[in-house]
């Protein structure tokens, strides 16, 4: 099976890898680039644990082929913290105990960041619908929603 050479930018760094055309972007991130922060919970776009930004668009990386990332910019949970400084969402998730097992957390953080980029002052309902593509089975979402609202408030205050 012929593999395709792919070059892309991941979290600001140039990367290249050889992808089987059947491999998803998630497979490539995890298995070829060692970026295992993005998780596979379903492989069908129903759980959001693999959420990444692809050229600034929030996508499930399990629904993108690795070869489609040619020339693209990809941002994953590993790129959220700037140097040693956590993104406010990351900090608020810890503060609010918004994670239990933590498996859905990377995808939810990426999706929440995309949400706040679009809408810096969401209502509770907007947060809930904005994260409806991210399943969490541990928390009942309560503390996740609170953490996102609190992070949004802090980020608005910081501007």
């Amino acid at each position: 099976m012929t593999k395709t050479h792919v070059t892309a930018t991941v979290n600001g760094d140039p990367v290249e890898f050889l992808a089987d055309p059947r491999e998803t972007l998630l497979d490539c991130l995890r298995d070829h680039l060692g970026l295992t922060g993005s998780k596979e919970g379903c492989g069908t776009g129903d759980c959001g644990a693999c959420s990444v930004l692809l050229d600034d668009v929030l996508v499930c990386s399990c629904l993108v082929l690795g070869v489609e990332a040619q020339g693209a910019r990809v941002e994953t949970v590993e790129g959220m913290a700037q140097g040693g400084t956590l993104h406010p969402l990351q900090r608020k998730f810890i503060e609010h105990a918004a994670l239990q097992c933590g498996f859905c957390t990377p995808g939810i953080l990426v999706a929440a960041k995309a949400l706040l980029d679009r809408n810096p002052d969401p209502t509770e309902s907007e947060v809930r619908f904005g994260l409806a593509g991210n399943l969490c089975r541990c928390t009942g979402y309560d503390k996740i929603v609170r953490a996102v609202l609190d992070a949004a408030a802090e980020m608005r205050g910081a501007q």
Binding site: T36, G37, E40, R91, A97, L99, G102, T105, P106
Partner: peptide, 22 residues
């Protein structure tokens, strides 16, 4: 209600789950 000790690993994607090792 202190921060959990594994919080940092889990919000940065560093925490290693079942499928994360080679």
């Amino acid at each position: 209600r202190p921060d959990r000790p594994d919080g940092l690993d889990k919000v940065t994607g560093r925490a290693r789950y079942g499928a994360d090792v080679q």
